[in-house]
Amino acid sequence: MKIKWLTRTAWVFLALLAVLSLIAPWLPIADYRAMDPDARLVAPQWTTAPMLGTDAQGRDMLARLLWGARISLFVGLFGTIVAMLVGVPYGAFAGYRGGRWDRTLMRLADALESIPMVVFVLFLMSILQEYRAELAFVGFGRLQLFLVAIGLLFWLPTARVARAEALRIRQLPYVMAARSAGMRGWPLLRSHILPNMMPALRVMLLLTLPRVILMEAFLSFLGLGVEPPAVSWGGLASDGLAAMNPLVGSAWLMLLPSGVLALTLLALQRVGASAKN
């Protein structure tokens, strides 16, 4: 009973956040980029004008948080989709074909797992900086690079789940029946196997989302995430950490973005766990 209530709250929170970040450009809030040298480091007023205070450049924190939500949630969602677009076909193919294909593909996945992927992806991002002009020409900014990098990082667990599911479904009677009726290959995968993988994949989506959002925060913190003036929660928290010192009490600069981030991740975890059961 208590758990159900928690899950419902989590859904409401996530929905509210999504809607607010979607309509952020039309909300009556300050411009998130506008600096105000006269109002630096104003503590949260809660009821009047800078409701959540301002940062070291006098920018409105409420606006920055909402615009940060746009980037963080967008990257989370699309990064997860990229990971699934890579992982699901890979795993489903391995599980569906079985035998030698399965062994080879899964051994490759094992080998990839023993490589520090985060480091490798950081390395890749740093190298790709050199090709910014070319990438920008084909419409690839930092954000798109990011999504590809995230896809590279998170497709492996998805592939494993997809494989396990494909192996299980392959042996179910209706798939056997379809096979004996002569159905093979892509049509079989599409009409019988993939649709029945959906519940497991939905859980995987919900479980991957928080990890991707966390990874975005991590990369932004290291200075390899989204570029200013764009803001994300990770970048905000890292700004807050940089502004923190014992003389000026400005803890809200770090606590607000990380609080929202933690709440979102908790809500996603809760929702994911409830979908799993």
């Binding site: 928080p210 925060a217 928290a237 807050g240 923190m244 770090m254 933690a262 991740l265 975890q269």
Partner: peptide
């Protein structure tokens, strides 16, 4: 669950 949902640089900030 809480520790898994908080980025470690935030933990670091709070601890510091």
């Amino acid at each position: 669950t809480l520790l898994l949902a908080i980025p470690n640089f935030v933990i670091a900030g709070v601890v510091v």
